[in-house]
Amino acid sequence: MKSHAYHIRPAEVARLLGGLLPAPIVFAGVMWLGALSGILPAPWPALDVDRTILVHQAQASQSPADADVLFIGDSSCLMDVAGVKLEQALAEKHHVLNLGTFMYVGFGGYSAMLSRYADANPGRLRTVVVLVHPEMLRGMDAPAYYRRFLSDFYAGADLREPDSVHGQLCGVFGLNIFQDRFLGRAPLPLPKEWARFYGFNLDLYQFMNRERGSAVDPHQYAAGPGQGNAEYHLAPALQDQCRALRAALPPSARVVVGLAPVPESFAPPDHASRCQRILAQWAEWVGADGVLASLPMSMPDRFFASTTHLNAAGRLAYSELLARELQPQLEAAANKHPPYKAADEK
C-alpha cells in the first residue's frame, strides 16, 4: 500500500520557500545602505552587562568631562572604587571619573581609552590612577572579542560576529547592524542578581553616569575551595605594554598605581609582602609618579562580592581608605601643576 503521495510540483515548493526571501533581502539592503550612508544612528551595542559597561566607559572616555582624577583598570577598579563616595571623601575638591572595564581589554585598550580622554579634554587631566587586581598582572591576554569591540566602537563600526554560520547569516542579513544600532538602545533586562540590583541595561548605564563611571557587583562572596590561585606574580611580557600606557598620557599627568584587595580567607600568609614586591616592580615599568602602597592588600570577606570584586559595602569602606591614600598624591599633582581653569581648554 502506498504510504503518502505528493500532489505538489517542485515549482510550488520553490515559490513557497522563495517567498521567504524578499523581505529579508529588502531589510538587509536598508540596513547596509543606512549604515554606509550614515543615516542610521551610530552603533551602541549595550546588549548585556559587560557590553553596556564597555559602551559606557568608551563613550565616557571620548566625551568632554570635568574629571581631573581618572581611574583606569580592570573590573576590580570598576567595582572597588565608588566615584561619588571618593569625591566626598576628597572634600569635593576633585572630580573623579572611573574608566574601569568589566571585561579586561588589556593595557593596550586602556592606553587607547586614556589617549581618547586626553584628546577630548585637553589640559584637564592631572592624575591617572591605574588600579588592577593582581590577577591581571599574570599577563593573561585580553579576549580578542572585547579588544575588537572597543576599537570598533571608537571607529563607529558595527561589531563583527564570531565566524559561526549563524553569525555570518546575521551579518549578511544586516541583523548585526540592527542589533548594534537599535536593539542596544532598547531596554534589555540584565540577568539574575544584576537585574535585581540595576534592572535593565539602560538603568545600569544611568547608574554608572551617576556614580562617575563606577559600578557595584551585586553578588555576595562565599569563601570556599576552587576559587583560584592567590600566588600572584608579575609577567615580564607586560613591561612593554606598561610603557605604552605611560606614553599614551600627556607628560603633565601624574600616574599613580595600586593593587586591588582580595578576601582575607583567600589571601595566603605572604600575600601582602608579595603584592608589595609586585607593585614596586610594576610601578617602575609604568614609570609611575606615585604608588598606593599603604592600601590594604586584603580585607574582611564580608566586604566582597567575589575574589576580585568588593561588594556595595566594601567599595564604600575601600573608597574611604583610597581617599586618604590618594590625598598626598593629588597634592603633589597640584604642586606640580596649577589647578585646572576653564581657560586651559583653550
Binding site: L20, P22, A23, P24, S164, H166, L169, C170, L175, Q179
Partner: peptide, 22 residues
C-alpha cells in the same frame, strides 16, 4: 495578499535568526 504573507513570514524568519540562541 501574497505580498503581505511573504513579507510577514520573511520578517518572522529574520526575528528567528536574530534571537536563535546557540
Amino acid at each position: 495578499p501574497w505580498w503581505l504573507r511573504h513579507a510577514l513570514q520573511g520578517l518572522l524568519c529574520l526575528g528567528l535568526l536574530l534571537f536563535w540562541e546557540v
